[in-house]
Simulated assay, not measured.
Amino acid sequence: MVKKLLVVLFLGLITVMNAQEESIRFGAKAGLNLANITGDGTENLDMRTSFHIGALVEIPLSDKFALQPELMYSAQGAKFEFSDFGLTDESTIKLDYLNIPVMAKFYVVEGLSIQAGPQLGILLSAKEEGEDSIDGEYEEDIKDFVSSIDLGLNFGLGYQLEAGIFFEGRYNLGLTNINDDDEAVDDSSVRNSVIQFSVGYKF
């Protein structure tokens, strides 16, 4: 699957090189992440509110279709709370990624687009930070237990103003099991799940 995604990214770069220079628009965007981890044993996890920021290029293919590769820093993960028998534990799983989405865009009407496309995520760091009633505050590096590659699919909507400002809403469905703990007793499967709201500007 990684090879297939790399082929898609490569074809996107070829399209960039062949597109007319005056029709390409570069831009930047940032916004809100509502991130979570779903799958086996994640019932007690809640959304982590965080952010994303990065750059993009929009390549028109026709009046209705465009391709939009992006390079994004995305802070993801989840939050955990436990309280029972006088014991408490509140922690945040912080997974930071360099994400490379390639979005296909269809303009329904002028300015309004439906978007979908694959995403390659490269893990930059993974930590668990929190406080419990036994050890107090703690911080643990968990990068060795998280897969270094995360593949996903994005679905969303976007609206572009004539002035260059645009707004996007997107859902990232994780396809890769990010559990990479070889010593785990059970072979649990967990995946990233992220809702994103962005505002940006195209030059």
Rank of each mutant, 00 (worst) to 15 (best):
D96Q: 13
K143C: 07
I195P: 01
Q196N: 14
N99K: 12
T42L: 11
Q68M: 13
I37T: 03
A163P: 00
G156A: 08
I122A: 13
V7D: 01
A78W: 00
I14E: 00
K29L: 12
I53M: 13
S193F: 02
I53E: 04
N36C: 09
G27V: 06
K127S: 09
D141M: 06
D144W: 00
N18E: 13
S23Q: 14
S188F: 07
S188I: 11
V190D: 02
P101C: 09
L32R: 04
I122Q: 08
G41I: 08
E137A: 15
L173E: 01
I178P: 00
V194L: 06
K3W: 07
I142V: 12
I14R: 00
G200P: 00
D132W: 04
G174V: 08
I134F: 10
E43R: 12
Y171A: 09
M1E: 12
Q20V: 08
Q115K: 12
V102I: 12
D40Y: 02
F10T: 15
S188N: 12
I178D: 03
D132H: 03
K79V: 11
P101T: 05
L95G: 06
Q160W: 02
T42M: 13
K79S: 15
L173K: 15
D186W: 08
I100G: 03
V108Q: 02
M1Y: 09
L175M: 12
T49Y: 08
S133V: 01
L153K: 05
P118E: 05
Y138K: 10
V108S: 12
Q76L: 11
L153H: 02
G136Y: 04
Q160E: 15
D89H: 07
E168D: 11
G158W: 00
M47T: 11
F106E: 01
A30R: 03
P101Y: 03
V109E: 03
Y201H: 04
V57R: 04
A30Y: 00
V146C: 06
Q68H: 00
G121A: 13
V194E: 01
L151R: 08
A184M: 14
M17F: 10
F85E: 14
R170G: 10
Q115G: 04
E140F: 11
A116H: 00
L9W: 03
L13D: 01
